[in-house]
Design a protein around this nucleic acid. Structure first.
Lengths: 235, 235
DNA sequence: CGACCCCTTGAGGGCCTTCAATCCATGTGG
DNA sequence: CCACATGGATTGAAGGCCCTCAAGGGGTCG
């Protein structure tokens, strides 16, 4: 167990006013004077793949909006194994429980190089109290998280391992179907689909043989979404 | 397919002021004058087991707080099979998406005789805008739903069928460990644990033989929580 | 009493897990 | 520059758990 590298970097105060994805996140519709009211700094932070945004039971004093990359939310099963309960992508928010609880209820880890905005809870609380739109956006984010969780339950936790993996790949490739997707470790794949890493590996290999996946460079895959759809819904 | 019986009954306008579980639900901390502001009636409704609170894609114009009984939230899997994604119990809320979406995203069915309060969306919206405590309670309910979903993912969708069933039984018996719990159909059990109804049945029988379950009357079981815990965490 | 629904139990087979060995890329130290 | 250690990926073999198909049991209701 070597100590983790310095895998996050503070990139300076965020420029919320000119944020390119503001419409996706909490501060859509803020007015100029709202920005002037910020008391605590909103930071833009980079994490390398594997970097930890926050840990289980860490003091929860900020929520994180994802500007780029992919973050996994992990819980521990009764037997101590890990289970990935959600993925958070561009525009998504991690750590919403910080608004209600003193500590985080998951571990949040970057699956790819990630850019996030770290927003202190105090700011979110103040803004949602005064600004109904922030309040509405916040509820949308809760709903988003819940919808994702439901999707994991119906899509990624039922059916054969082949079907589950195919559905996950469809999910990962839906934004940019033409571009290759970065796949993560087989262990992560397994703990997302509730199968072993060996099964994940075998199934990936199988998909490559079938032509449903095409590996352009190590762990970068182009998805044949038609073939994957056929597998995902197969009897 | 016979048409469903008349299995719900309007029980009159709810007496929110004197509600025994008000501290659990959305209207904790309302003042007297808030109640006077109600425009649409809040109804108290009874459903028999099997009764449907709302269906998938129904127009969503109310949220439901559960006063008694157990409600399942059901989604359909890609192959058309049903999947129970959440259970809602005393104090829980079903249909929160009504605040954000025009239609419901699940089917909500009573697993037992159920008492609910049906609260029109318009009332919730108005109250949360003016009353920060309602707004806070609402967020708590979102969080509650998400926590339940996470529990389903980590506890009820991983491990062997034996472990999953044991965990579910622990969940169902945690409120009143001494009292027998009503078990639902093996099909529902299966679609909650992502196993077949036969496996659910076999495992129940097995638990009875082991003494982990004791059947007092048909489908009423007393749980030996120690034995179930041992099974739930077994290697 | 028979129809119906749900539960139970059996037998066979397939999928996935488990244990294990090998391969490959990377990085470290000699 | 190469040997070696390391961590992840791949593949094999054996076995067990769960699914599938099927038959029979028990309760309820017309």
């Amino acid at each position: 167990m070597k100590p983790p590298e310095i895998n996050n970097a503070w990139k300076g105060a965020a420029a919320c006013r000119s944020c390119g994805i503001r419409h996706l996140v909490l501060f859509a519709d803020l007015r100029e004077e709202d920005f002037d009211q910020f008391h605590s700094p909103i930071e833009e932070i980079h994490f390398d793949a594997g970097g930890q945004l926050y840990g289980l039971d860490d003091p929860a004093d900020a929520v994180y909006t994802i500007r780029q990359g992919l973050v996994k939310l992990v819980q521990y099963q009764p037997d101590g194994a890990q289970r990935i309960v959600r993925l958070v992508r561009l525009g998504g928010v991690a750590g919403l429980e910080a608004l209600l609880r003193p500590t985080y209820e998951h571990m949040a880890i970057a699956l790819q190089p990630v850019e996030v905005c770290r927003i202190p809870v105090s700011e979110v609380r103040r803004l949602q109290a005064t600004n109904p739109r922030v309040h509405y956006k916040l509820m949308e984010k809760w709903h988003e998280a819940l919808t994702t969780a439901d999707g994991f339950l119906t899509g990624l936790s039922t059916g054969s391992a082949r079907q589950r993996l195919a559905r996950l790949l469809l999910l990962l490739s839906e934004e940019k179907p033409e571009e290759p997707i970065r796949l993560f470790t087989r262990e992560d794949l397994g703990s997302m689909l509730a199968v072993t890493l060996e099964t994940a590996s075998r199934t990936i290999s199988d998909f490559k043989r079938l032509g449903a996946l095409h590996e352009t460079s190590p762990n970068r895959m182009i998805c044949d979404r038609d073939k994957l759809s056929a597998i995902a819904t197969a009897a």
